[in-house]
């Protein structure tokens, strides 16, 4: 007989168990970042993979986000004769929200999947077992470098995204919407507050942590075979995107005391 409450209960318990396992995994991974040995070459490789190679997609996302934001704000604000506030809205929105969230989601899509696929393939091809037999802690060799790269490089990417996003808004405003270059820059500088930028960068560090932890966790726990690696990749992207959105809300509430 179908028992809806029992089914719901078992799903809830399974979800709680998964959250517990991910939390334990993340704590162990973070702890590994501070304890020697440090695999510098692997750390550098991950800094490049997660940071440098994500630059084009993050930059592209940021410039279009800034351009669309300027257009939409202009169209909306014209109804209230407040189109002069476009520069303020663009800089505040980009630095506080759009820069960190869009960059985080792009990195989640691009990197979390590749982390899960790479570690999952290593699990399937017994490379993780080989590490253990060589007395290398897989957390130190595989997880710690990716967490370090995530925490350091996502803020760097967000900083670039902030600059490019604001530039996108500036380009649209000054070329299509007849804003003067001088007044747009003056308004941008006047309304750009350090707390907005810093809160965005702190959020980004947590987003980087989320991307790395979910990617590594799903790779580590993937089922054997190509299907297992595929499922791990999908789960990594979905869970790191959800992680970013939840963390974004919690950190925003924390920063701005709501």
């Amino acid at each position: 007989m179908f028992k809806p409450m029992a089914t719901l209960g078992s799903y809830a318990l399974a979800s709680l168990q998964e959250i517990g396992m991910i939390s334990i995994f993340a704590v162990r991974g973070i702890k590994s970042c501070f304890l020697p040995p440090f695999f510098w070459r692997e750390i550098f490789r991950q800094l490049m993979a997660l940071g440098f190679y994500s630059l084009p997609i993050v930059g592209l996302t940021a410039i279009f986000a800034g351009m669309v934001l300027a257009l939409q704000t202009y169209v909306g604000f014209t109804r209230f004769n407040a189109e002069g506030a476009v520069a303020s809205v663009v800089v505040i929105s980009i630095t506080r929200e759009l820069g960190p969230v869009f960059a985080g989601l792009m990195v989640a899509g691009r990197t979390s999947s590749s982390i899960a696929a790479e570690i999952g393939s290593m699990r399937v091809s017994e490379q993780i077992d080989a590490l253990i037999t060589l007395q290398v802690d897989p957390y130190k060799f595989l997880v710690a470098p990716r967490i370090i790269a995530g925490v350091l490089m996502v803020p760097f990417l967000v900083l670039i995204a902030d600059i490019i996003g604001v530039m996108g808004g500036f380009l649209v405003s000054t070329t299509l919407l007849d804003f003067s270059v001088g007044s747009y820059i003056a308004q941008t500088v006047k309304n750009m507050e350090m707390i907005d930028v810093i809160s965005g960068l702190v959020k980004a560090a947590f987003f980087g942590l989320s991307v790395a932890c979910f990617g590594c966790y799903h790779g580590f726990h993937c089922d054997l075979g190509a299907r297992g690696v595929g499922n791990a990749t999908t789960s990594a992207v979905v869970s790191s995107c959800i992680g970013i959105l939840v963390l974004n809300y919690l950190l925003t509430a924390l920063f701005f005391g709501i």
Binding site: S121, D129, A130
Partner: peptide, 10 residues
């Protein structure tokens, strides 16, 4: 150990 699939690091 010599693993079945060699397990060389890619």
């Amino acid at each position: 150990i010599l693993f079945q699939g060699n397990a060389l690091f890619d």
